[in-house]
């Protein structure tokens, strides 16, 4: 079964405590690893202001999971996202080779976060 690269970004409601946020993210990571996919990167952007209110909330806790998985794992991940009411919004994206290379560079700090230069390649 050919494993593809994927990236899932999701927003949690801000009303949760820090611990609840952590274990929600861990829960999704668990759903993935249980299905034999390897989560090779995890990022939390923390509480950020949303560009527009999502069901009356103006801030959200952003989290990102980058993983390699079988295509059928994504279906269960998506249903998991929909079932969990703490998740305001989620987006799972498949990554092509340019994207994977870009993410590897991003993790390596090629685009320094401070100046947020836009030299993505």
């Amino acid at each position: 079964m050919q494993q593809n690269h994927y990236e899932a970004v999701f927003i949690l409601t801000p009303v949760l405590s820090e611990a609840q946020m952590k274990d929600t993210v861990a829960k999704f990571k668990e759903v993935l690893t249980a299905q034999g996919s390897d989560v090779y990167h995890q990022e939390e952007w923390g509480l950020k202001k949303l560009a527009y209110p999502i069901n009356h909330k103006t801030t959200g806790f952003y989290a990102l999971l980058e993983f390699k998985a079988d295509p059928k794992v994504i279906k269960t991940l998506e249903t998991e996202f929909r079932r969990d009411e703490r998740v305001l919004r989620h987006l799972t994206v498949s990554l092509d080779k340019n994207a994977v290379e870009y993410n590897a560079r991003r993790r390596g700090g090629a685009f320094n976060k401070k100046t947020e230069t836009s030299t993505e390649a």
């Binding site: 970004v9 990102l64 994206v93 092509d96 340019n98 994207a99 290379e101 870009y102 991003r106 685009f111 947020e116 836009s118 030299t119 993505e120 390649a121």
Partner: peptide
């Protein structure tokens, strides 16, 4: 021209252009 191959949807500052 600048050889950008992937446009990242996670970086709003770049997309604002």
């Amino acid at each position: 021209k600048s050889g950008i191959k992937y446009i990242d949807y996670k970086d709003p500052n770049f997309l604002l252009k």
